[in-house]
Amino acid sequence: MSDEKIRVLIAKPGLDGHDRGAKVIARALRDAGMEVIYTGLRQTPEMIAEAALQEDVHVVGLSILSGAHMALVPRVIEQLRAAGLDDVLVLVGGIIPDDDIPALQAMGVSAVFGPGTSTDDIVRFIRSAVQLSSP
């Protein structure tokens, strides 16, 4: 009787103190039956990668509203890779200019969700991208 759940880490890297969006997403993913590890504000890329490893998550969701995404995201991805977590899905939400999206995707971000994204879309995306019963 296996009882698998999608596990998602929601983190706010950098210094902006606005975590309402992150909390809304955490709540929506919870309501979709996922286990959400919420780590709170001001996480360094190292802290995010360490938490992702210890919690063995399928998905890391980064909420960034400070405009520092082009600096923060590559460092998070680098730390995840250094920890051997290449297979973890990385999602970015927040205020991200459209022009930056291709560059973020090239770095390894699977999807970028801007303001106004329906939480249902995020849930659907995660469900389709995460395959449970992996080895």
Binding site: A26, R30, A32, I37, Y38, G40, M47, E50, A51
Partner: peptide, 16 residues
């Protein structure tokens, strides 16, 4: 929903 928000790490940042 069977889901959960696990928030205890928020208070454990000193251990990172």
């Amino acid at each position: 929903s069977g889901g959960a928000v696990l928030g205890d790490r928020v208070r454990m940042v000193d251990l990172a």
